[in-house]
């Protein structure tokens, strides 16, 4: 089954060109990509992730607010009992913050220089590892 990904763009920075390019690249790699638009709050992102039942949430942050946004997203996923959904980040994130984000449970950070191929490979690897293969989701659905 196709991998389903939510591409989310939180914060106040004004354009979503990058997020749209990512969405199309993932589509071209055979994924089903839900795009939610600009200015998403952590609550909106997690609501969409729950209802869409995605495998992966990709959060793109350019504004430098990652150390407030990621903890909120991770906490909300737990609160909704969907913390089996993998979270990855992209955009402008300082090297020093990456270990902190990973400690929160963020699976991978793709910095601004990462190619779309690296992103695709990374997502496929993470979905393979976590076993959140949507064709083998019976256990998760039955909980």
């Amino acid at each position: 089954m196709p991998i389903k990904v939510l591409v989310a763009k939180p914060g106040l920075d004004g354009h979503d060109r990058g997020a749209k390019i990512v969405a199309r690249a993932l589509r071209d790699a055979g994924m089903e990509v839900v795009y939610t638009g600009l200015h998403q709050t952590p609550e909106m992102i997690v609501t969409a992730a729950v209802q869409e039942d995605v495998d992966v949430v990709g959060v793109s942050i350019l504004s430098g607010a990652h150390m407030t946004i990621f903890p909120k997203i991770m906490a909300l996923l737990k609160e909704h009992d969907v913390d089996d959904i993998a979270v990855v980040g992209g955009g402008v994130i300082q090297e020093a913050d990456i270990p902190k984000l990973k400690a929160l449970g963020v699976r991978e950070i793709f910095n601004a220089e990462a190619t779309t191929q690296e992103l695709i490979d990374g997502i496929e690897r993470i979905v393979g590892e976590t076993g959140r293969d949507r064709s083998r989701r019976e256990a998760g659905a039955a909980r």
Binding site: A23, R24, R27, A29, Y35, T36, G37, E52
Partner: peptide, 13 residues
């Protein structure tokens, strides 16, 4: 590719 961009939700977010 069997991929898709699902964009309807943007208008209802």
């Amino acid at each position: 590719t069997h991929g898709a961009v699902l964009g309807d939700r943007v208008r209802m977010q």
